[in-house]
Design a protein around this nucleic acid. Sequence first.
DNA 1: CTTGAAACGCGCTATCT
DNA 2: AGATAGCGCGTTTCAAG
Lengths: 174, 174
Amino acid sequence: MTQDLRKSSTRTARTLRTSGPRTTAAALDDTDRKLLALLAEDATRTYAELGKLLFLSAPAVHERARRLKKEGVIKGTVAALDAAKLDRPLLAFVHVDTTSWAVTRQLLALEELSDVEEIHTVTGESAMLLKVRTRDTQSLEQLLARIHAIEGFTGTRSYIALTTYLERGPSPDL
Amino acid sequence: MTQDLRKSSTRTARTLRTSGPRTTAAALDDTDRKLLALLAEDATRTYAELGKLLFLSAPAVHERARRLKKEGVIKGTVAALDAAKLDRPLLAFVHVDTTSWAVTRQLLALEELSDVEEIHTVTGESAMLLKVRTRDTQSLEQLLARIHAIEGFTGTRSYIALTTYLERGPSPDL
DNA sequence: CTTGAAACGCGCTATCT
DNA sequence: AGATAGCGCGTTTCAAG
């Protein structure tokens, strides 16, 4: 594997910020964004197929994809699974109200449970927000019981999803 | 492409429910679940590599993957993008309190916006829950303004994510 | 249902414009 | 920086246990 370490030299940036992005944000042209949108929706397409859609040759697409991967814009390629088929049809968002920040560390242990899909600290009355997917209400109750076993929080509020109309990952603006 | 339509005949189901699963939920053995977990975390692995991890040959893995795809357990393969690199670092959960269910239909139009990643109807005081990712607080405000333009809701409550400790898709129990 | 071997197609590199 | 040509490899299929 040849290491091509040249930095993207001078790529046409669309948005010109006065003092440059402090943290991250990559320089992407319109073709890059279109490519990312296509890959975010289906990453199994061949480079030839992508080339047709982007009016480019297959190697040209490959080069862009390689660059975007190296820059970290594409974090990886994963299989999207059907939660219901995995016998986990119950989706819930759990707000956890905490009194001390020490609780955060305890909650991170929940990462081990495959039921837990997301863990965030958030603003507002609740300090933490969990996205969990369980088999049924009993499994959810067990999970909540485990959270209640932790010291230093006021309580939890759960919002059970009735219907999911949209669920997708990050995608560029186009 | 040869169409192999034989149903998975008699596969060893681990959990034996008295009256069968009413809706969905596929019959998966331990190897299936391990394979799904591996693919959910990285779908770029070669079948040979997966075979080593599962103590199986490459075609055997391929056959299982094909079956899981046909059954819909694997919905697709997508590229996971870095939201920050896409210049969309602000993650927020927006609860929308509605008075009538007619609002639901209006909110579904928000699907067009790439900022909006998830739309659910939920139980609890708020009727709908949105997961949105914007460039900054101003973009979020614009989105909220658009929601407020819709008739028939009491208000919105937004929870801005400070830190995301875990964010992944559905994965089997193992 | 799994294992091993063979052929096709695609990813990837190198070269050139 | 994109297009064309070519090699190597992985996927995919087939027959056999």
